[in-house]
Amino acid sequence: MEYLIHLGILFTIYAILGISLNLVIGYTGLLSLTHAAFYGIGAYTTAILLTQTGIGFFLSVILGIIFVGIVSFLIGIVLSRFSDDYYALGSLGLNMIIFSIFLNWQSLTKGPLGILGISRPELFGINFSSNFMFLILTLLFLILTYLVARFIVNSSFGRVLKTIREDEKAIQVFGYKTFYFKLAIFVISAAMAAVAGSLFASYITFIDPSSFALMESIFIVAIIILGGLADLRGSILGALFLILLPEVLRFVGFPSEIAAQMRQVVYGVILILLMLYRPQGLIGEYKL
């Protein structure tokens, strides 16, 4: 039972990451590979604030959102000038740079050793230190993220995003400054990833740079492509599927070292097969 709760928490965190990235990739059509960096900045903000100051978890989440908002704004200014494969490449490069900072700014992030002893949150006398309570907390955040995302995609703002995806030139002709739309959704999506990062840091109570490497970004991309681009429920489905998959592999009986690699093989093969036979994912509407 305890293990199921653990999987549930991981699932909700990745569902938040999937939903938020889907706003950029699925709805706006920009293949961003920087998501793990924002997830990481959120996690590090919470970790550093909780271990070195007296600030509580919820305040650290807000500060994390603000900080990631600023960083993603600056990055977004650079990225929003690009489109298609150059966007993918630029965002990938920025993920690598931020990863280097996590790894090498040792006085702040403790480098590869990571940060230990991050505490669990407490609010209005409710203690979230048990895993069950924490699952409820992450579920609340997931629902909140889903509602915000749904509001965005159903609004007129969301329709502009979809038009950028379908034909950016056409909507520019109508006088829309697509640069600002791309930038805005990028910042919103990054801020959501920061929340997921804070939850992750507080749940695992230990973080190191390896959790926020490029492979993590690829994993989140795999989640939303599998579930379906431009479909929020698809991202939840994708997260569920890819979180449960390793458990199936373990059930089959691979030793743990090989199981970790088998997982990578399966992710890779899934991506290839999806691209070959179903580029819109399980229930998505948009094909890359």
Binding site: L31, D85, G268, V269, P279
Partner: peptide
């Protein structure tokens, strides 16, 4: 589209790299 090819090639990258590690 180029993006589909890019994602597929990254899938191939991930899978082959892991197979070598196994």
């Amino acid at each position: 589209s180029n993006m589909v090819l890019l994602v597929a090639s990254f899938g191939a990258f991930t899978a082959i790299q892991a197979i070598i590690a196994i």
